[in-house]
Design a protein around this nucleic acid. Sequence first.
DNA 1: AACTAAACGAGACGGTACGTCCAGTCTTTAA
DNA 2: TTAAAGACTGGACGTACCGTCTCGTTTAGTT
Lengths: 196, 196, 196, 196
Amino acid sequence: MTQAKIGRPRSEKSREAILRATHALLQEAGGAGLSIEAIARRAEVGKPTLYRWWPSVADIALEAVLSRAEADIAVPAFTSLRETLGLFLRRSMQAIAEGGDAHLRFLLAHAQKDEAFRERFRDNFVSKRRAVLRSIFQEARECGELGADEDLEVFVDLIFGAMWYRLLIGHAPMDASFADALTETIVALGRMKITA
Amino acid sequence: MTQAKIGRPRSEKSREAILRATHALLQEAGGAGLSIEAIARRAEVGKPTLYRWWPSVADIALEAVLSRAEADIAVPAFTSLRETLGLFLRRSMQAIAEGGDAHLRFLLAHAQKDEAFRERFRDNFVSKRRAVLRSIFQEARECGELGADEDLEVFVDLIFGAMWYRLLIGHAPMDASFADALTETIVALGRMKITA
Amino acid sequence: MTQAKIGRPRSEKSREAILRATHALLQEAGGAGLSIEAIARRAEVGKPTLYRWWPSVADIALEAVLSRAEADIAVPAFTSLRETLGLFLRRSMQAIAEGGDAHLRFLLAHAQKDEAFRERFRDNFVSKRRAVLRSIFQEARECGELGADEDLEVFVDLIFGAMWYRLLIGHAPMDASFADALTETIVALGRMKITA
Amino acid sequence: MTQAKIGRPRSEKSREAILRATHALLQEAGGAGLSIEAIARRAEVGKPTLYRWWPSVADIALEAVLSRAEADIAVPAFTSLRETLGLFLRRSMQAIAEGGDAHLRFLLAHAQKDEAFRERFRDNFVSKRRAVLRSIFQEARECGELGADEDLEVFVDLIFGAMWYRLLIGHAPMDASFADALTETIVALGRMKITA
DNA sequence: AACTAAACGAGACGGTACGTCCAGTCTTTAA
DNA sequence: TTAAAGACTGGACGTACCGTCTCGTTTAGTT
């Protein structure tokens, strides 16, 4: 049917070296020192190998992030809105604080100058995180902790928006108390609508 | 005390040409085509003139934005929380939709790779917008529409966070209905606390 | 005796496709566009196939030239020095003018950067042409048109040197009148020595 | 009239470093190791500086050769055809033998793949050498050592052609005896026509 | 009115990274 | 068991900007 796959297969060793190098560069120097050239040098790989498999540096960084962070978006088992959401937000913020901020900054910065990448970033990263948060809200709704007519999409925008905003602007820390404040806000919104 | 002002004074003509060129480049090509080189070419100005007065391209873009957008942050006269906040948010989103998004994207992208600029961006741009929003909330509090123990900073993070998030990720539009949804959320939070 | 012919036999189809592609590329774009890569693409053949059978692009070009030009060096039947040499030179120049110049330029250019190829080029191409010209001179000597003590090697250098020189530098055409001028020079040198 | 010369002037230091590096690379590794990249590295100069002033590597090599070899084409004072021509040819061949061959090979090889450079090479290098040789022949003619109806251009082609041919093909040395053989050939051609 | 000093335009400088092309090698499937 | 095909490392290509520099020119304010 399709063409037989002949010829030398893609080198898994190279792929891993590239992702490892990308991760290391992001951690060491932040987004500043990350370039195709630098990755190729560090991973001891030819530049054409990078261009063959990824359309831009940002896509490499995205894959590097995805390959390490799948566990991050594990949904905590739902108990109550306050507990589950609080746990999720505290864990998320801690993951960012522990070295993930350079990665996220870099991805978002590149998404601003590359429309096509922005779409890929949205589809492969953002939407998955949004789905997790939305599922928590939906479970809360099923338990009666959120009303039926709330716009959960707006709730997701509020929570992730506030987090990205603090990360990107840096005017205030992403600590546990911030996580709790966000949690309480959602809890309050849920309670209010029910009493109304 | 300070040194006497001798020598040729700074050329106001050049300054204006530079800001105009920067604005035009951002509107035409988005952040992609904006560079020191491009601005100098377009403004018919030597590169050292740029480096003499601004530390980076992003600072030029910031000044270009500030010089045009002072009116944007005019505080509407306070009537009620719903009305005042709603007006402010609709106006803000409309300003962005009418061509300001490339500017903001560019500023924020650069803030991610340049720590020092991030601080200047925060001090000269972000904090002023935050002050406006905060003042609206404070007036609402004085009118009893917001409780005394609300964390207004978190409210500001929620609103501006959600707006930046939609702008940067592009998963949903920044339209009037979004402005209204945000408004209603804050109104609801205020009402709830009071009834509680 | 020799090793048995086991394994997959060499593809004659590929060999021909390669030589045809090489010839076509030389004619179309001159030496500029000729590379291992380009030949492989055009002939729809893998690069290792080229490296297996030829040590360099230049050797492929050499074989392409040799496979087509064996007739060129047919020795005309000897009648007189003037007539035979004149015919040979006019025919040679015409062959070059009719599209062979890109091939020769390419071979010679590569011979300059590859010592080993220069030797192969000399042994398989140049020396055969020299032998033809030398045999004409020898027949002329037997007929008494050239003296016994002439250095025929120098005569060959003079004639082929002048031809290559015009081809490579391009300051003057390789036309029939040039062929005749070279012929007359040799005839004159022969006559002079005899009268002396 | 013409545009005023404003802006930072060209760096003479860089220009010299580039020519020196080019010369050294040609002598050390032959044409093989010569590239824009290698010259820039060796001369400690940015690549754009090379591209700003020269259209190709070959042009740099040409300038490097010209800047050193102006003395080579000094015309010896004319005494007799045999003596003057012999001296000129022996000197020329010696200059090539003493390290100039890599330069000439490189120039000629590049002239084959770059039509425009071939023309520059012809105008700035070849034609000057031809003029020297032609002037020797012309002085000989004035002394009656060459007839009035000889085609001096063909004589020049014969002599320089034979020299380039031996240089490029490498089938025989460019030594004093070769110089003498060429000299005697021209002398003979001159004598013959006169006796005829 | 001449002098002084700084800002101006222009543009070359040493560099870094870009994205592409080709060289030559290696590894897998096909014949 | 060799041929063929394609991915590999590596390096040069020519271009775009970077941020710095050196010019000659212009434009005030100071003598």
